[in-house]
Design a protein around this nucleic acid. Structure first.
Lengths: 326, 326
DNA sequence: CTAGGTGCAAATAATTTGCAGAGGC
DNA sequence: GCCTCTGCAAATTATTTGCACCTAG
């Protein structure tokens, strides 16, 4: 609950003055957890600061949206809702048409697909909206669901980022193990075995971190999924999976590994970068970095291998200096 | 352009009367291709039928939405748009914020993911909205894009349904061919070879149909993709792909085939069923049916195999009548 | 002192509603 | 003739604007 407020002076548009009214609107707004309509916020502000006009609230919200502090969401009921953007990843909504509550989710797969679709249509995306309307569990069963505050959202996001990293790692471990089992060539097999060992080690690290995160809040694990993922976890190795044959030699094994690690690194880097500063973002970027280290190792190994291959068979210019590329 | 109108008498809510005014609103509405706002429609109707009130248009649209003839879409600019639902598959939108045009797309993958997400949250979906906002190609490059009318949409949908079926078939052919190459057991291999041959044959049929469709309109092939798919085409065989090993015998091969064909059948049947009557829907349902035929064949073969396996080793009750299950 | 911020009230803009009259069954 | 539909105008709702006044820099 003790979230740091963003640096407001930096966010303030050029040539604007500070104002106690605006500050109090902002203060009340940032205290809100869910979505507020402009009018809701007006009432809330009025309750503690008398003499504030409705127009000020509207104007402040416009300013906040422009500054990226607030996000405007449209649930289609004719009134705009606003939510604090700070430390909230950009997300999608499930909207209950009966109780008008809304819960949030994220799906890296949906995001990737939408990106691809926009690219295919030569469309420059500025924003993607995904909303699922229907009846929520609470309304259907009558069972109440505990509300989530901002700090919880943050932790759930971190939890899911870790889960995604772990699933990817596991998928990698699985892939390399399978690859090692299938590969007849001893050098190719040994490459895959080494990769599997590395993935296994990193998997352990991630799992420890996951347990540590859960230790902070025992209820965390049972909270509903916020970030859905499939493609990243399993899809990143699907391409490599298709290239597996018995006759994979060390060079091919390295190339397969390079392709997988590069895909994984790129994906997590790009994905992590979309978020505001948060634990979850950290998880993604660190994971991406880890994959980059693997990738570098593989690349070095691949280059060394090519070198070794070229030397014993000096077919062309045998005088070429070793260790120099192109 | 010669689209059949839906049976309006059937759609009319109980206890409602026919009315020339309403009919003329409806008639003008159904003639529209893109999205109209209530006010746009009001103007359009006024132009040819004098003395129609704005309220009537609003009321008629409400009624049409309730009857499923129209769909209401919210582009977030404060005014609702309406589009004819008839012979238009439920779709998603790309909205250009500069020229306020909108184009449509569909993604079986996004749809599946959203379904899964809703299910994970125990949420009963009534509607899913996906909107990508940004700048369209036309606005960025100045190059005009030819508009698409309803008949074209219908054909593009059919085209993409066929493409999806073809891609799936190709993916199946690829998978079974790979499986046959990898399988050492001669009986297992022969199963996969037979499956590959069947997929190849069906692929030919689909491709012929695709060519026939294109023959009707040479420009059809170059139109932008409407239906995006990945998972169905490649994902359906991913599971089976993982189970491939050298030592797959005939029984296991059959089981893998059964799993793949069943997944494919189910997916296409369910997906086809979501659409209004159209050529595209036909393609999906026929494809599903074809997969079901394959599935049945495999199942019969599997049962026969089990039978054969049980007979030569009469471990328990050897007196059991053959050809009787359970 | 002055540019911007503010409250209030009035303006807008999309849509709905009340009501008296018209029209289908 | 009854019951629903219709047009018009007035009402409602969410949001913006005009304007005289206020306040921070």
């Amino acid at each position: 609950m003790d979230r740091q407020l963003p640096d407001l002076s930096a966010l303030r548009p050029a040539g604007s003055k500070r104002s106690s009214k605006r500050d109090s609107v902002l203060e009340v707004f940032l205290r809100q957890e869910g979505h507020v309509s402009a009018d809701d916020l007006f009432d809330l502000v009025r309750r503690e600061t008398a003499g504030i006009g409705r127009a000020t609230v509207y104007r402040t919200l416009q300013w906040l949206v422009g500054a990226g502090v607030a996000r405007k969401v449209d649930f289609g009921d004719g009134r705009a809702r606003f939510e604090p953007a700070y430390r909230h990843p950009r997300h999608f909504h499930l909207i209950c048409t009966r109780c008008h509550s809304s819960s949030e989710f994220l799906s890296s797969d949906v995001e990737s697909l939408l990106e691809e679709i926009a690219a295919a249509r030569q469309f420059t995306t500025t924003q993607a909206t995904v909303q699922i309307s229907g009846i929520c569990e609470q309304c259907r069963t009558g069972r109440p669901t505990p509300p989530v505050d901002g700090a919880t959202t943050e932790m759930v996001f971190a939890r899911d980022a870790l889960r995604m990293a772990i699933a990817t790692e596991r998928s990698g471990l699985d892939f390399y193990t399978r690859a090692a089992g299938l590969t007849k060539d001893p050098r190719g097999r040994s490459i895959f075995q080494k990769l599997a060992a590395e993935e296994g080690e990193h998997l352990g690290t991630l799992e420890t971190r996951y347990r540590e995160l859960l230790a902070g809040d025992p209820a965390l694990e049972s909270r509903p999924t916020f970030l859905f993922f499939k493609g990243a976890a399993s899809g990143l190795f699907a391409e490599g999976s298709k290239q597996l044959r018995q006759g994979v030699n060390d060079q091919e094994a390295l190339l397969i590994g390079i392709k997988c690690e590069r895909g994984s690194h790129k994906f997590f880097k790009k994905y992590g970068e979309r978020f505001e500063d948060s634990e979850g973002k950290q998880v993604f970027l660190e994971f991406a970095e880890e994959e980059r280290v693997h990738l570098d190792l593989l690349m070095r190994e691949y280059r060394a291998l090519r070198q070794r291959q070229t030397k014993p068979s000096p077919r062309g210019r045998a005088a070429r200096r070793p260790r120099t590329r192109s």
